[in-house]
Simulated assay, not measured.
Amino acid sequence: MKIKNLVFGGIFICGVIAGCNDAPKTVTEKIEETIPSVNEHTSENSLSWAGVYEGVLPCADCPGIAVKLELDKKGTYHYHSYYMERKADTIHQKGTFVWKATGSEIILMNNGQPDSSAQYRVIEGALEKLDIEGKRIEGNLAPNYVLKQTKVEEGSK
């Protein structure tokens, strides 16, 4: 009987000790999980991303939307677009952009507010347009949602 109690007691103590290892994370630990380490390679700190990006994005009722997006190291952008084969004016916007916590995506700010329709994943030599939820666009048209870098800002990286 004594051996049985010792075995059950030992199992109970091991369970208590193992349960203590799953202590809730502190606020600092939770924040640190979302912020890339200084030594972690991200698009922001590893790529020559500042420069000019151009491409033609898909359009439902025209041949495409011609886009030119200029990003600079100061965190500002100039955006120009027009609907091809339409008599519509060119859209010009300028403002700032912010990096998401991952360090690989940016979101353009519009009047000081994040513009969910203007999110991009920064990759080597290009920007991938993301959907309104910040997710990658998938399917047959996915390759058409890429703006190629046509000019690199001097001193970039």
Rank of each mutant, 00 (worst) to 15 (best):
M1T: 15
K2M: 10
K2V: 12
N5S: 12
G9T: 07
G10R: 00
I11A: 14
I11S: 14
F12K: 01
I13R: 00
I13N: 02
I13Q: 00
G15E: 09
I17V: 15
A18C: 09
G19W: 08
C20H: 09
N21A: 13
D22A: 10
D22T: 10
A23D: 05
A23M: 07
K25H: 04
T28H: 00
T28K: 05
K30H: 08
E33N: 12
E33Y: 11
P36R: 04
P36S: 13
E40M: 15
E40W: 01
E40V: 06
T42V: 10
T42Q: 05
S43V: 02
N45I: 10
S46C: 10
S46Q: 09
L47R: 01
L47E: 02
S48V: 02
W49M: 10
W49Y: 09
E54P: 06
G55T: 06
G55E: 05
L57I: 13
C59Y: 01
C62S: 12
V67E: 01
V67N: 02
K68T: 15
G75D: 02
Y77F: 15
Y77D: 05
Y77E: 08
M84K: 08
R86S: 15
R86N: 06
A88Q: 14
D89V: 01
G95T: 05
G95S: 01
F97E: 02
F97Q: 03
V98Q: 14
W99D: 09
K100L: 11
K100R: 10
T102R: 03
S104G: 13
N110M: 11
Q113D: 09
D115S: 15
D115H: 08
S116A: 12
A118I: 01
Q119E: 13
R121V: 03
R121A: 15
V122Y: 08
I123S: 12
E124Y: 09
E124M: 04
E124I: 04
G125T: 07
A126Y: 02
A126I: 08
A126N: 07
K129C: 11
K129D: 07
L130N: 11
L130K: 08
I132G: 03
E133I: 08
G134Y: 12
K135T: 07
I137R: 08
E138D: 09
G139W: 02
N140D: 15
L141F: 04
A142F: 05
P143I: 09
P143S: 04
Y145N: 14
Y145H: 15
Y145M: 10
V146L: 11
L147E: 07
L147S: 03
Q149I: 10
Q149A: 11
T150P: 07
K151W: 09
S156L: 06
